[in-house]
Amino acid sequence: MFAQQFPIVFHSLNVGFVQTLKLFAVTLIGAIPLGLVIAFGSMSRFRPLSILTRTFVWIIRGTPLMLQLIIIYYGPGLMGNNWWGGGEVGRFLASAIAFIINYACYFSEIYRGGIQGVPIGQNEAGQVLGMTKGQIFFRVTLLQMIKRIVPPMSNEIITLVKDTSLARIISLQEVIWAGQSFLKGSQGISGIIWPLFFTGLYYLLFSGILTILLGGLEKRLNYFR
């Protein structure tokens, strides 16, 4: 019985996990640069911009990602214009946008801490040595910021691995959705719960690999303080 089910389940979970990985990757690709833009906005000396940005960050960080997913996916339809359509592509797009915005806000706070954590004396030492602003940023402060943000970013990135499962709420066919489908019935199999539990292994394996990679990066930056 199990021997017959396993290949079917395994294949379905793999398909689901590819969707999970895609959401993970797209979120990082979008949120890492967008977070920087938001960080600069929240540090702007132009008060209206910094207040607006900080309010936005507060709203996004202060409400559940699940709620944001629901609003972004169902909101347009309720207003009489469902851009997302009914398919998987639309669900993925809506999920990606919600995740990118949400994670960009978290990243922006990490960046802000990293940027403001580099002592002003580093900048001044560069200035006194006749360096341009660009040289000071790229040769002096950037690496110190990266060193500061790598540990908190690692935490967020590991959290993101697991958060992708929230997209299940709008029926994105990620790995949890795939596991759950065998409970209700799919491909002639129904009423089994182990596929759902089995999805846990995917998360464990993937977050384990990331932990090792990010830990390695952190270690490589340990040559200075």
Partner: peptide, 14 residues
Amino acid sequence: HFGLVFQSFNLFPQ
């Protein structure tokens, strides 16, 4: 034309 040595050194750690 000037050089400046700071009280807190401000060496570049990396």
